Measured scan of single mutants.
Amino acid sequence: MAMNGTITTWFKDKGFGFIKDENGDNRYFHVIKVANPDLIKKDAAVTFEPTTNNKGLSAYAVKVVPL
């Protein structure tokens, strides 16, 4: 089920960042999981599918909501 969130941290040079989800949890995401990576920036609103990996909470099918 899709969730909403906000990008809180973005490491462009490393290709990953973190999203604060609607429950207040931080989720890892990688640029290859983003549909529109050219719009990635700190504080951008996103929708995504929540999941977990071996390191904890993460996100896939991430879409940055255009302003």
Rank of each mutant, 00 (worst) to 15 (best):
M1N: 13
A2T: 15
A2L: 14
A2S: 13
M3H: 06
M3F: 06
N4A: 09
G5D: 00
T6Q: 08
I7S: 00
I7E: 01
T8W: 08
T9S: 14
W10C: 03
F11G: 00
F11M: 06
K12M: 07
D13C: 11
K14F: 11
K14V: 06
K14D: 06
G15R: 07
G15F: 06
G15H: 07
F16H: 04
F16I: 05
G17C: 02
F18K: 03
F18I: 09
I19T: 00
I19P: 00
I19K: 00
K20D: 04
K20C: 14
D21V: 02
D21G: 04
E22A: 09
N23W: 08
N23H: 11
N23E: 06
G24T: 03
G24N: 06
D25M: 09
D25E: 10
D25Y: 08
N26F: 15
N26K: 13
N26C: 14
R27W: 10
R27M: 02
R27A: 02
Y28Q: 03
Y28M: 06
H30V: 08
V31M: 09
I32S: 15
I32Q: 15
I32T: 15
K33H: 15
K33E: 15
K33T: 15
K33D: 15
K33M: 15
V34I: 05
N36D: 06
N36Y: 05
P37S: 06
P37F: 04
L39P: 03
L39R: 09
I40E: 00
I40V: 09
K41R: 14
K41D: 06
K41T: 10
K41G: 06
K41I: 08
K42Y: 06
D43W: 15
D43F: 14
D43M: 11
A44C: 09
A45H: 14
V46L: 02
V46M: 01
T47A: 05
T47M: 09
T47P: 01
T47F: 07
F48D: 01
F48N: 01
P50K: 04
P50D: 02
T51N: 09
T52R: 13
T52H: 11
K55R: 14
K55P: 03
K55N: 10
K55H: 14
G56C: 09
G56Q: 07
G56V: 07
L57P: 07
L57A: 05
L57I: 05
S58I: 08
S58A: 14
S58M: 10
S58F: 08
A59E: 02
Y60R: 15
Y60V: 15
A61D: 14
V62G: 00
V62S: 01
K63T: 13
K63N: 10
K63R: 11
V65Q: 10
P66M: 12
P66R: 10
P66D: 13
P66C: 12
L67D: 13
L67I: 12
L67P: 13
